[in-house]
């Protein structure tokens, strides 16, 4: 399928006050192939985060359409969508400090029923190996380096084998060496798991490591 993700005329407007109307996205339209790893670049206020919130299933107040495998995402149950269709990685990692590495990774699975414990354990072991966190599984987030914390966030994003990985400035809080390691990890997961990956970044070096770059300017792709 050539158009795995298809974004059509995506608009998002905010009204910070009665008289002010901010158009964060204006007829955004592009598509992503299955298994592709693309980067989304743009200056501050270009609409990158707004787009990521919409595609990540956190913001549903948009106009236009987003299709994944030909299905409009509005037709999904919102929680199912956030759980199984997309996995999101944040710049600030957003780990829960009172949970161990293992518990943080398994967090999304706490909210689903009828999950096989054996399969889940197998998946956890696989992911811990992949992300190199096996020896850190009982550690708490404050005992981890930035790179390790981001690997935990990646592991958590892929535990449910989502179809799409969204990474919002995943290297923004990391030094360049660690940032490269993270991008390499995302790349290898993209290759092995076949997950379509969208990385939002400021860093042109990182953007250059992806298959394609989509540039946003004032809420539109250019």
């Amino acid at each position: 399928m050539s158009e795995y993700i298809k974004i059509q005329n995506l608009c998002r407007e905010y009204r910070p006050s009665k008289k002010v109307l901010v158009a964060a996205l204006r007829n955004l339209a592009f598509s992503v192939k299955k298994g592709e790893m693309i980067s989304l670049v743009g200056s501050s206020g270009s609409g990158k985060s707004t787009f990521l919130n919409i595609l990540g299933g956190l913001d549903w107040n948009y106009s236009g359409d987003i299709y994944i495998e030909g299905k409009n995402i509005r037709n999904y149950d919102q929680n199912y969508y956030r759980r199984f269709i997309v996995g999101t990685i944040f710049q600030q990692f957003h780990l829960i400090p009172s949970l161990t590495v293992e518990e943080n990774i398994l967090l999304p699975t706490r909210f689903q029923k009828n999950i096989s414990k054996q399969k889940l354990n197998e998946r956890l072991e696989y992911i811990l190996n992949k992300t190199g966190l096996s020896d850190r599984r009982k550690h708490y987030p404050n005992e981890l380096s930035g790179g390790q914390a981001q690997r935990v966030a990646i592991a958590r994003a892929i535990i449910d084998s989502p179809k799409i990985i969204l990474a919002d400035e995943p290297t923004g809080n990391l030094d360049s060496k660690t940032g490269n390691m993270i991008i390499n990890l995302l790349r290898s997961l993209n290759m092995q798991e076949g997950m379509t990956t969208i990385i939002v970044t400021h860093d042109s070096k990182i953007a250059s490591q992806t298959d394609r770059t989509v540039t946003l300017v004032d809420g539109k792709n250019v």
């Binding site: 990540g56 956190l58 919102q78 929680n79 199912y80 956030r82 759980r83 199984f84 999101t88 957003h94 829960i96 967090l107 999304p108 706490r110 909210f111 689903q112 958590r156 449910d160």
Partner: peptide
Amino acid sequence: TKEIGIIKAMGASNSQ
């Protein structure tokens, strides 16, 4: 609050 945001982003529903 932030934690609620995280678990919601991870797929927790309002009722959960």
